[in-house]
Nucleic acid binder design. Structure first.
Length: 419
DNA sequence: TCTGGGGTCCTCGGGCGG
DNA sequence: TCTGCCGCCCGAGGACCC
């Protein structure tokens, strides 16, 4: 596997065993902060915090120089500055990050079409079919890191393994500017000593629940009875952790992403108690949600609002509409109705609007049931890039993406069963 | 210290229909 | 006609991720 190279990071030795490690996870190093350094070289080597310098802002990204002082993402900027008073606070430039992200993803696609972007700065790649063209997974990872650096001037870290989960853990451990390949046969040895918190999906609450039962490492999970995990974490999570600890993760690299919700929210600079101002903010957020729905060709069946009060308690309310919509006015009306029913005893810190249960607009008339038989019918009806159902036209990508994502194409409920 | 914004997924409880 | 049970859907809230 890997070895330390004296700088705290890990780089798998050239020619090290990479048998069966055909899934790569690539993660850009301190992405936003690194882009800021790229665009202003005078920042190089200095502690940088990307975020707004106002009282309610949090750290979006921090350079490794700042992280040495304990600065972390999502930490309030004020707290970060107390830990690292010499840090330079830089305002984020999201358009620039998007441009560089697109360049990086393009580099990934030079190696394989099987790229699953996870966020703006990371992706999974399935390189099992790229050996003839580019070499073994380890060779591909090295080439890819060099290509990213040449194309953008940015460094990234790469983990390689037999599964997405282990590849992701490997890239995290190799950071920054590292490479760690875990050959399939060494998966168990790699996992066993890791903290439960290192498992993807185990956060502060879940790790606390496990540690309360004496389960601190992946090896401890292997020894724990299933029902103990289920009681600590709930059935679904217990099951997932049981499998992940054994290196079992059947998820494939999925190149099709289908949005399930679209929302906007905003934290006010000062808490607001005036209902008229809050209603106009809801309208503004509803306008933005509607505009995004329309530009994506979606409409939503459910509208939800979120309200966070001055004491940080947070509530949400949602409503299913009689008809799906992408009209901002209707979204705003629904948001107003929901807001009117909220008991407001404290001023409001944050307000948000979200559109859920999305479907392609103009797909009314579809009557499909979400089961295998219907999917065969849908796929049978696919003609080139689109399929026609009733009055609606749905793209092939949408249909197949929905299927893979396990979501529902505009579906109707199954007819009531005859008793 | 005082907690962003964009999401996804899971759990739980209540309502409803067979 | 009523009741219990079951399964499904919906809404609310929480945990988690980047």
């Amino acid at each position: 596997m890997g070895r330390g190279d004296g700088t705290g990071r890990i780089v798998s030795a050239e020619g090290a065993d990479d048998t069966g490690a055909g899934i790569l996870h690539v993660d850009m190093d301190a992405f936003y902060a690194s882009v800021e350094v790229l665009d202003d070289p005078s920042l190089r080597g200095k502690p940088i915090i990307v975020g707004a310098p106002d009282s309610r802002s949090v750290v979006s990204s921090a350079s490794y120089e700042a992280r040495r002082f304990g600065v972390r993402s999502a930490m309030p900027v004020g707290q970060a500055l107390r830990l690292c008073p010499t840090a330079i606070v830089v305002l984020p430039h999201f358009d620039r990050y998007l441009t560089l992200s697109a360049q990086v993803m393009q580099v990934f696609r030079e190696f394989t079409p099987l790229v699953e972007p996870l966020s703006i700065d990371e992706a999974f790649l399935d390189v099992r079919g790229a050996r003839r063209l580019w070499g073994s997974p380890g060779q591909i990872a090295r080439l890819l890191r060099q290509r990213v650096l040449d194309a953008t001037g940015l460094t990234c870290s790469v983990g390689g393994a037999a599964t997405k989960h282990v590849a992701k853990m490997a890239s995290t451990i190799s950071k920054p500017d590292g490479l760690l390949i875990v050959p399939e046969a060494e998966t168990a040895a790699f996992l066993a000593p890791r903290s439960v918190r290192a498992l993807w999906g185990v956060g502060p609450k879940a790790s606390e629940a496990l540690e309360g039962r004496g389960i601190r490492t992946v090896a401890d999970i292997l020894d724990a009875p299933r029902d103990v995990l289920d009681r600590a974490l709930g059935r679904a999570m217990g099951d997932r952790v049981w499998h992940l600890a054994r290196g079992i993760d059947a998820r494939e690299v999925d190149t099709v992403h289908v949005e399930k919700s679209i929302g906007h929210e905003e934290t006010f600079h000062d808490d607001i108690g005036d209902a008229a101002i809050l209603r106009s903010e809801l309208r503004r957020l509803a306008d933005r949600v509607g505009a995004r729905l329309r530009s994506n060709g979606w409409e939503a069946s459910t509208i939800a609002i979120k309200v966070r009060f001055a004491d940080f308690t947070t509530i949400s309310r949602s409503q299913t509409l009689p008809e799906p919509t992408a009209v901002s006015q209707r979204i705003g009306d629904a948001a107003h109705d929901l807001f009117a029913a909220v008991d407001r005893r404290l001023p409001v810190r944050l307000i948000g609007v979200r559109a859920e249960k999305l479907r392609p607009s103009g797909s009314a008339g579809l009557t499909l049931w979400d089961d295998d038989e219907d999917w065969r019918r849908i796929e049978g009806a696919l003609d080139g890039a689109t399929a026609k159902f009733g009055t609606g036209v749905v793209t092939r990508a949408t249909l197949l993406g929905k299927r893979r994502g396990g979501g529902s194409i505009p579906t109707s409920p199954r007819p009531p069963r005859a008793d």
